[in-house]
């Protein structure tokens, strides 16, 4: 039994470390405290609401979030805007609908059940407007990048002057954290580009953190219930394991004495 556990834990450790070394590229990303990390991790509502503001006022002019609906903004575990606020937010966007009885498409104010409107009609239009580079959809962006939240957070603050000797084409920018260091997106955030409704000072660092938190929620909208359920499930399993272990000892004691 002891040997078994020893070996099994060695296997698990080897397994996890190799997997981790595969996935994480060795880059030192900027670090910050994410409230949603860890077993009891939860989103910071204020940060999510501010992050949504940064997304709508800055990112959404180029980046779509096509898998999200406005109703998500009011759901539990998210920014948790009130039902009324969600309706107001949705109604502030023009949504294409149709065809109507005359067979024509029309626009109407958005409803909570509508998906986030997209800045471009299709990928080609997005590429045409952005010098050939498609601004990726942000719905699952955090999960689609090896470094996850740390990568996005660092990238947003990673704009620097290119080192001497590096020649950048027009419309290409230097970013310390970008793969290959060349990025088509110009620095999206600058001091005070957003005026937070709750009065928080809109530093680049603050906005980066808020919008990254928002993107994490967008990619994992059920993270909070997952953490909660996980804790309950594992506590339950440990208790049951102990009970089964005791039962096993009792049952096997019949044999031990007989031998």
């Amino acid at each position: 039994m002891k040997n078994f556990i020893k070996l099994l834990s060695i296997i698990t450790i080897v397994f996890i470390t190799t997997v981790q070394s595969n996935s994480a590229e060795k880059v030192d990303y900027l670090k910050t405290d994410w409230s949603f990390k860890g077993i009891f991790g939860k989103f910071d509502r204020g940060s999510l609401q501010r992050g949504y503001q940064v997304y709508t006022e800055v990112c959404s002019s180029c980046h779509s979030m096509k898998y999200l609906s406005y109703r998500n903004l009011g759901e539990k575990g998210g920014p948790e805007f009130s039902e009324e606020a969600v309706k107001v937010i949705a109604a502030s966007f023009e949504v294409n609908d149709g065809p109507n009885a005359d067979g024509e498409m029309f626009t109407r104010p958005g409803k909570p059940s509508d998906k986030f409107i997209m800045p471009y009609d299709n990928v080609k239009a997005a590429q045409a407007a952005n010098g050939g580079a498609y601004p990726p959809d942000m719905s699952v962006l955090v999960k689609a990048r090896g470094g996850g939240v740390d990568y996005i957070y660092s990238l947003l603050q990673g704009y620097e002057d290119a080192p001497s000797g590096m020649i950048l084409d027009e419309g290409v920018h230097y970013n310390k954290y970008m793969y290959g260091n060349k990025i088509k997106m110009s620095a999206p955030l600058s001091e005070g580009v957003v005026e937070y409704r709750d009065g928080t000072e809109a530093t680049v660092e603050q906005m980066s953190k808020d919008v990254t938190t928002f993107l994490m929620w967008a990619a994992e909208p059920h993270l909070e219930s997952r953490h909660r359920m996980g804790f309950k499930a594992i506590v339950y399993l440990i208790i049951l394991t102990i009970l089964v272990y005791l039962s096993m000892k009792r049952i096997w004691s019949r044999i031990e004495t007989e031998v």
Partner: peptide, 19 residues
């Protein structure tokens, strides 16, 4: 005590299966 242990284990296991 043995009975009690087995009954508890069974009951708790059944709860898990239901969940």
């Amino acid at each position: 005590r043995r009975e009690f242990l087995f009954t508890t284990t069974y009951a708790l296991g059944a709860v898990g299966v239901g969940a």
